[in-house]
Simulated scan of single mutants.
Amino acid sequence: MLTLDQIRAFVAVAEELHFGRAAARLRMTQPPLSRHIQKLERVVGVTLLERDNRRVILTDAGRGFLEDARRMLSLVDTAGDRARRIASGAAGTVRLGFTAVSAISMLGTLLKRLSEELPEIDVLLHERVTAGQVDGLLRGELDLGLARPPFDIATLDSRVVFREALCAVVPEGHPLAGLGRPLAPDDFDGLPVISYNPVQSRYFHELTVRFLTNAHPRIEQQVHQILTAVLLVAAGRGVALVPASARSLGVRHVAYCDLVRGGGDPLDQGGGVANEPVELHVIWDRGSTNPALARVLELLPDLESPS
């Protein structure tokens, strides 16, 4: 079997072309150095060095082997450093889940920050709805998610990284788009509303229900994703409530309207524009042993945006 001692011995002799100088460089005597070379040539099965009392010459095979030997020693020298960097979290891999709308509001900012400050961490991206991200974390398929609450706090930790307002999306030319003011719950009375699946998209389902509590809309569809809701609105199937970042999805033939609470709801502070908080969280398994995850989380606290 090849050994590192044999490879180091060969490289030293090949570079010095002199057994005495190579032995001095390796701080050993010539006899064990010669034995290393002999054993190496037996293992490889070819002559790597031509030597006599006057000179040492590399054979063609020896020159080829020298290139590979240098690469092997370089890999050995860097392997320990890489292992230490992975153990410290400065290098490694983080598998990140995200939704389409979270990609608009946060993903680009996060990836840019990571590439600048932790360039040796590879980020593998997985687009999944929140429920799929939670499942991926619990199964060990993901390390981190950009998702919406609620979460199982018994196994998952979370942190708010972005807040934005809730708004309405209506078909282009819809009467609500022409009112020229923020929309109140009563404005949706009797209108077809595209809502969200109460299980797969529980967060936006609850936001919609909470805002329209005192209105009497017609729930026409229940979807899983924000993008689907906006596309159905563009097709004229109803109106929907979405996070403000949905404006950046680029869907045509829709208009976006601010929302306002009616009556003295403390959220609108006496009739102003409703600041219905739509939160985006990072979530992770609190039992994770991935050192890179801890380093990524260190970058997140100052990413939170004010409402």
Results as ranks from 00 to 15, higher is better:
H174Q: 03
A168W: 00
R95P: 08
L26N: 08
L118R: 15
A255M: 07
H253K: 12
L144R: 04
L48K: 06
V273M: 12
T109I: 13
V94S: 01
L138A: 07
E304R: 14
S195G: 12
L144V: 00
E50G: 06
F65P: 02
G136W: 03
Q133G: 07
D60M: 07
P306E: 08
S288H: 02
Y196F: 14
P306V: 08
T289H: 13
P119T: 10
A22V: 09
Q200L: 15
V278S: 01
K39E: 10
Y196C: 03
T155K: 15
L299M: 06
L280S: 04
G20M: 15
A12F: 02
V230P: 00
Q6D: 08
V251K: 02
L33M: 03
A91Y: 00
G236Q: 10
L227N: 10
D68E: 15
P171A: 05
W284A: 04
H174S: 03
M28Y: 03
R113I: 11
L166N: 02
R128N: 13
D189N: 13
R25D: 08
G89Q: 06
A14I: 05
A215P: 03
V169T: 04
T228Y: 13
A9G: 08
L4T: 09
L179C: 12
R95K: 15
L48Y: 04
P171V: 04
A100G: 14
A215K: 00
L96I: 11
L293A: 06
R159Q: 11
G64F: 09
D68I: 15
I37H: 00
G272H: 11
F65Q: 09
D186Q: 12
G250R: 09
I219Q: 05
V170F: 02
F10Q: 03
V278R: 05
Q133A: 05
G287T: 14
G45D: 11
D152M: 13
V169M: 06
V101G: 02
I86P: 13
A154G: 10
L124V: 06
F10R: 03
L212P: 01
L96N: 05
Q222I: 07
E141V: 12
R71D: 14
D186A: 12
L124M: 06
L142Y: 01
V123N: 07
S88R: 12
G92C: 10
C167Y: 04
A292T: 14
V76I: 15
P175C: 06
E41K: 04
F10W: 04
A246Y: 00
V44K: 11
G136R: 08
L299I: 08
V11R: 09
T289I: 13
I104V: 15
A91D: 06
H126N: 06
R181I: 03
V76K: 10
V278W: 00
L33Y: 01
A154C: 08
T47N: 12
T59I: 09
R84M: 04
T130C: 02
P150R: 13
A131V: 14
V11K: 01
T3Y: 03
V193R: 04
L259W: 02
G263H: 13
L144Y: 01
D52P: 02
T3D: 05
R84N: 05
I219R: 01
P192F: 03
H253I: 09
P243M: 01
R113L: 13
R82S: 05
L17D: 03
G271K: 12
C257A: 11
